[in-house]
């Protein structure tokens, strides 16, 4: 496979995954604000914290302030910035636009079904319909985007043979997902005390639940943990669960599988494979208590550093030949 094509495929799924995440985070934030404004009398929606936190997760708070000036974060403005603002390269429109542009340049490799899905989504976002739906009901719009992105993943799963093409798409998707989960955890846990006992206030429960919602994990978690939303359980679930498709451990394992499938013909392991293997075994064998002893924040930034290194090494091994 051409290196350029491999790189395109890898980025297509990274962008789609990220767009889906932005949609989910905004959707959760939107609902959380509705809840919070009812519960917390001290801050009646003056500072739209949950939606503003999405800016931090995506590391584009500075960009927002450059565009809109510092000071109060207007909820409406943040929502627009992250959905339809073409000038913001982290917006849903910009990311799906790039995913589609990459897919256009590699449409002969991915299946027609998968390409048509991205193309249709792109035209939908360019048209009036998307803006109308957003104006009517942001959650409906956001859920539509989420579904469209998941449909793309499904089409990839259902139509592509398990060749390098498929594995580069998987690699991008899962690496991005692992990265996003760790960022969500870092930002959302920032305000909450790490490890120690937690005051059981209604607002806190809302926050922990929203963390689960942000990773599409709420219902799956409850099935496993029998409706105890406690911080340690949540953290353990989102980082270490071997079965849940949006846990860091699950995603890292998938990355490793795909990378091994790609490298199969080569007979030599790349540096990327070594880094991934190391992260994978750490997540397999670590004692959950150790995460809290080390400090959750430090642990998560370790994961993010590893993901970045792995991304760089993948570029070195396959895209710069």
């Amino acid at each position: 496979m051409l290196s350029r094509v491999a790189e395109n495929l890898y980025w297509i799924s990274r962008y789609v995954e990220r767009a889906e995440n932005v949609a989910r985070l905004l959707d959760v934030g939107f609902h959380l604000e509705l809840d919070a404004s009812g519960l917390d009398g001290d801050a009646p929606g003056a500072d739209p914290a949950p939606i503003a936190s999405v800016l931090s997760i995506l590391a584009c708070r500075d960009a927002f302030e450059r565009a809109h000036g510092p000071g109060r974060l207007d909820r409406e403005a943040v929502m627009r910035f992250l959905t339809f603002d073409r000038g913001n390269d982290q917006s849903i429109v910009a990311m799906l636009g790039r995913a589609r542009e990459n897919a256009r340049a590699t449409q002969e490799t991915i299946s027609a079904e998968a390409w048509h899905q991205l193309n249709r989504l792109h035209f939908y976002l360019q048209g009036k319909k998307a803006r109308r739906r957003f104006a009517d009901s942001p959650p409906r719009f956001l859920q539509g985007i989420k579904r469209a992105c998941i449909l793309f993943d499904g089409l990839v799963d259902g139509t592509l043979p398990r060749t390098e093409i498929y594995h580069f798409l998987q690699l991008g998707r899962h690496l991005e997902r692992a990265n996003q989960i760790s960022r969500i955890l870092s930002v959302k846990l920032h305000g909450l005390r790490e490890g120690g006992p937690v005051v059981e206030s209604p607002l806190r429960i809302v926050h922990w639940s929203s963390l689960l919602w942000s990773c599409a994990a709420y219902e799956a978690y409850l099935r496993d943990y029998h409706d105890r939303v406690d911080p340690e359980g949540v953290v353990r679930y989102l980082i270490l669960d071997p079965e849940f498709p949006r846990s860091i451990r699950f995603c890292v394992s998938r990355c490793l599988e795909s990378l091994r499938a790609i490298a199969a013909g080569d007979g030599f392991g790349s540096e990327a494979e070594r880094c991934l293997g190391r992260l994978d075994s750490e997540l397999h064998y670590i004692d959950p208590a150790e995460i809290f002893e080390r400090g959750l924040g430090r642990f998560l930034s370790g994961v993010q550093d590893a993901c970045n290194t792995i991304g760089d090494e993948i570029h070195q091994a396959y895209f710069f030949t």
Binding site: M1, L2, S3, I262, G265, Y318, T321
Partner: peptide
């Protein structure tokens, strides 16, 4: 030659 993920 083409530049591929497995070299030229």
């Amino acid at each position: 030659f083409m530049r591929t993920i497995r070299g030229p």
